[in-house]
Design a protein around this nucleic acid. Structure first.
Lengths: 350, 350
DNA sequence: TTGTATGCGTTATCAC
DNA sequence: GTGATAACGCATACAA
């Protein structure tokens, strides 16, 4: 009973073939006689050999079959966002052709103990958003020649990106609202920067997060003077709290429409309105953004912009594949599709 | 301009030291003179060396720093469940002391192309639930001596598990409901098996999923004859649809309490009741399970069983660590805490 | 179709 | 504190 685990050479010896033959039996990269295959497989079974060690194989191949997904936030927070969840699904599909899996990484691991972009055996990295903390690891990663792609963010230099026509799309929704006749409109935005408490935006406040900025610009293209209220996160509860404040003014001055930057925020706004006895859409129109199925909003159906979240993930996978094969990464830009639900209507007369 | 990437030996040569010294500079495992460290670091910089190759390191060390998390379902579906999300958070923490990260794996990859338990360079695996498809890979994995732990499931043999006192806990909630005076009670259960359409359970129907079975048993300990309706998934919308059917009987025969097996289902039931003009808790009591913050249920607060979801994840990390160090895996069983909210009350008189 | 030889890039161990 | 040596386990180019 040797204490050592069997290796492929042991199997080869036991089977009476050369190591390379045994290797080929497992990898299937070269035709092998049925007889030899059987010999090798039997030998493996006798020795309790469970197949080639992935660690050794990845050193030899120069590929680990692992793609890192880097989140800006706490993982729990990331998965609360249905768009990210869908993107992950797409990404899973997108890297499958590479035979790769996804390694979850936090942007700036607080513990410092965990794995990082710099010391994990990854073939490529996908960044979801791109905050400042990341820049340094990014340098190390590209120094190592590891492909990087960014979804919804800007990593500077020549890092390929998957982007969305946020500004155009939001402008489209705003136009719709305007064409219905609304004049008193409020923007309910995503966070403008990390850890900003919820509240009204000052006129000169800079918006650090790309998505928030672009969607705000789109809305302001149509309603240049609309006040904006930033939520602390993208969730129904945040939307609920924000809208309650937005709507807590006498009816004549109360906004007749809220342009929210995510479906979750919009859904929260709808519930807040109901809670205050304000009917949607008769007295208040609400638009969302994302086009995700919001759990618990039935029977309302948001007027929103449907973004191809799953496709974004898949595209990231394709970009990674291209770079890994030395092909130039394709430029990928997706567009949103406007979808009219039953949360928008003409403003009340008066 | 060599086409080859610099290795640690190149750096060592350039710095005029031995490879082992250079290695030590990067790993920090042994004291090094400041002078030599500087020499090595400079050499590395000159050569554009970005640190040791993790693939080679993991072969040499026999550790990749990666722990697989295996889900039964599509990732998107998994993360719709707040309990799983919380567990992932805990797991992230739990494996951090190992310096490990999490690799997402689907139970039965439909494409067949993706990575699997058998060919990914992992140090350990955590199974969330444990469906049948998995058993074979499981064999291969344990043959390789890779530690495996199961959360909320049974992988047979000697695979350590992290479990919850589902039956006891559910019995506690049911007792509470009974002590309030309820007699017409309906169980709103989680799926009984994969892809079962929503609907009433037949008396003799077998429940394949452990969690569902255990919680049902707990409720039946108190209400042996309560009818049960199984949802298709754990979501508010499912709860909404299910409850609408459950409640669609004339008031005298209508249940006065619904014992739901998840907070999401319970929340959906509360909304369905509201939608039907049935007041909660005055006319209908609802209990949940999980104790997660349900986004969008305010101002209701569920009477529920709080389970330590994050702790379950952390515990899995600890179990893995123990096994990796050759220690016997601790047996981990968590208990839920009953929490009374404002969704339960005495049944209406009549 | 099979075997031979080599190196993938590191780091643990031990001596110095 | 530093250096020599020897694996780690495999897959491929090439020859047979």
């Amino acid at each position: 009973m040797s204490t050592r685990r069997a290796t492929i050479s042991d199997v080869a010896r036991e089977a009476g073939v050369s190591p390379s033959t045994a290797s080929v039996v497992f990898s299937g990269k070269t035709p092998v006689t049925d007889a030899t295959r059987a010999k090798v497989l039997h030998a493996a079974e006798r020795l309790g050999y469970a197949g080639p060690d992935p660690r050794a194989a990845s050193l030899r191949r120069g590929r680990s079959g692992i793609v890192a997904v880097v989140f800006e936030e706490h993982l729990g927070a990331a998965f609360l966002d249905p768009v990210k969840t869908l993107m992950m699904d797409g990404l899973t599909d997108g890297v499958a052709p590479l035979g790769a899996g996804l390694l979850l990484l936090r942007d700036h691991d607080p513990s410092g103990a965990g794995p990082s972009l710099t010391n994990a055996p990854i073939d490529a990295a996908v960044l979801i958003g791109c905050s400042g903390m990341l820049r340094e690891s990014l340098a190390a990663v590209s120094a190592r020649g590891i492909p990087v792609v960014v979804i919804e963010g800007d990593a500077g230099d020549g890092v390929p990106r998957i982007t969305l026509d946020n500004r155009d799309a939001q402008r489209q929704a705003a136009s719709h609202v305007k064409s219905l006749g609304h004049r008193r409109v409020v923007l309910l935005t995503l966070p403008t920067r990390a850890r900003r408490p919820r509240g009204w935006l000052a006129d000169d406040e800079t918006i650090e997060i790309d998505v928030t900025r672009d969607r705000s610009l789109g809305a302001r293209d149509i309603f240049p003077d609309a006040p904006a209220y930033a939520a602390e996160a993208s969730s129904m509860d945040e939307g609920f709290l924000a809208a309650r404040e937005i709507l807590s003014v006498p009816a004549p001055r109360r906004p007749t429409a809220i342009i929210a930057q995510s479906d979750l925020l919009a859904a929260g706004a709808v519930r807040a309105a109901e809670d205050l006895g304000i009917r949607v859409p008769a007295e208040l129109s609400v638009t969302g953004f994302d086009g995700v199925a919001v759990d618990g909003l039935a029977p309302h159906e948001l007027t929103t912009l449907v973004q191809p979240a799953v496709e974004k993930g898949r595209a990231a996978g394709r970009v990674v594949a291209a770079m890994l094969e030395g092909r130039p990464p394709p430029v990928v830009t997706f567009t949103c599709e406007f979808r009219e639900g039953n949360t928008t209507a003409e403003p009340p007369r008066g």
